[in-house]
Design a protein around this nucleic acid. Structure first.
Length: 359
DNA sequence: AATGCGTGGTT
DNA sequence: TAACCAAGCAT
């Protein structure tokens, strides 16, 4: 018998008591979160997208503002992408906002402005992966669809002593098989949320899971084996790469020149100070970007930002340009002079915010 | 399969 | 303080 089969046998044997214990616990201790006060599939979808790789406390105010600004799928679908990105400003992973907007348009065009209550149809929408399709299908529509996120993976790894790190195909498929078997039953949406809630509040990472508070402690393989702190196995993080940029600070009276990035890749669709990779010849990089009409002065400031996979270093240079702008530079779809008050309403990254604050 | 994609708080 | 962390998706 393989290790996976042993795990699934254990799942089958303990399913009833695990489900009952977890749901009873969830009903008592679940947090009062805004997206748990609604049954609107659109709002639940929005919460799931915002919560990807983002902590609950940080999402709450964005969720409230976004729903107030775009109350329905139709409102979202007919809004310009720039306004959607402006609401997303500072939340990170901006492709989520671009995909959300694109999916809203598809839902209006092909699903009569209602999210489809169908796992496969959800999975086909932009920004829906295996997790999000399972989450929306179960939480919004009550379908018995499994989900595995970082929390669930940690809970299962400990509960059933599942070895391996995230990204290990065999291990990840086993986690989904476990989830698929356990979600089969009453209240699938609550059950999935209970698993995640347990991982987020009790079966937490690092050295101190709160096992004394865990409703599943009696059945936990890692706890019995004294291996709670060593499961799940850590995944090796990829080394960050350095990216040095030459950044143009062009001012004209009270306004500043900003450019809108193309809709793909890093900070896609956001506005920023025009910039390009800093070459060995320093400030000359900006002449290459902006043309010979641009007069580049001595470096003003250096701003450092750390992203998950990048160490950004922004070298800010003063630039003078003619007021009348020609076509936007490479990598940008548009550029314009903005008054300071106008900048507040734009989609900009935190890195751009930091650069504007010191420039 | 591995990499790119943000942010701010915690350790 | 550098490393790690949080309800993943797209390519």
């Amino acid at each position: 018998m393989t290790n996976s089969q042993a795990v699934l046998t254990q799942v089958r044997a303990n399913k009833r008591s695990l489900r009952a214990g977890l749901l009873r616990w969830f009903d008592h201790v679940k947090r009062d979160l805004p997206w748990r006060r609604t049954q609107d599939p659109y709002a639940i979808w929005l919460s799931e997208i915002m919560l990807q790789q983002t902590q609950v406390d940080r999402v709450v105010p964005y969720f409230e503002r976004f729903l107030a600004r775009f109350p329905t799928v139709k409102d979202l679908a007919r809004a310009p992408l720039d306004e959607v990105l402006a609401e997303w400003k500072g939340l990170g992973y901006y492709s989520r906002a671009r995909n959300l907007h694109a999916a809203a348009k598809t839902i209006v065009a092909e699903h009569r402005a209602k999210l489809p209550a169908d796992h496969a149809a959800l999975l086909a929408l932009p920004g829906f992966g295996r997790y999000t399709a399972g989450a929306v299908a179960s939480i919004a529509f009550g379908l018995k669809t499994p989900l595995v996120d970082g929390n669930v993976a940690r809970v299962f790894a400990r509960l059933f002593v599942i070895e391996g790190a995230a990204g290990d195909t065999q291990r990840d498929e086993l986690l989904w098989s476990v989830a698929e078997r356990l979600v089969e039953g009453e209240r699938p949406g609550d059950f999935n949320q209970a698993l995640m809630e347990l991982g987020a509040t009790v079966c937490i990472p690092n050295t101190a899971p709160l096992c004394l508070l865990c409703p599943l402690a009696k059945q936990c393989g890692a706890l019995h084996a004294g291996r709670v702190t060593e499961l799940p196995a850590p995944k090796k993080a990829a080394a960050r790469k350095s990216l040095a940029l030459a950044v143009a600070v062009a001012r004209r009276k009270s306004s500043v020149l900003l450019a809108r990035r193309v809709d793909t890749g890093l900070f896609g669709g956001l506005w920023e100070l025009p910039s390009t990779e800093l070459g060995a010849d320093g400030a000359a990089s900006l002449t290459g970007l902006l043309g010979a009409r641009a007069k580049v002065g001595a470096e003003l400031e250096v701003v450092e930002r750390t992203l998950t996979h990048r160490d950004l270093t922004l070298h800010l240079f003063p630039v003078t340009l003619p007021e009348k702008l020609t076509a936007p530079p490479a990598g940008y779809t548009d550029w314009r002079w903005f008054e300071p008050a106008e900048v507040e309403g734009l989609g900009i990254s935190s890195a751009t915010r930091a650069a504007l604050d010191v420039a």
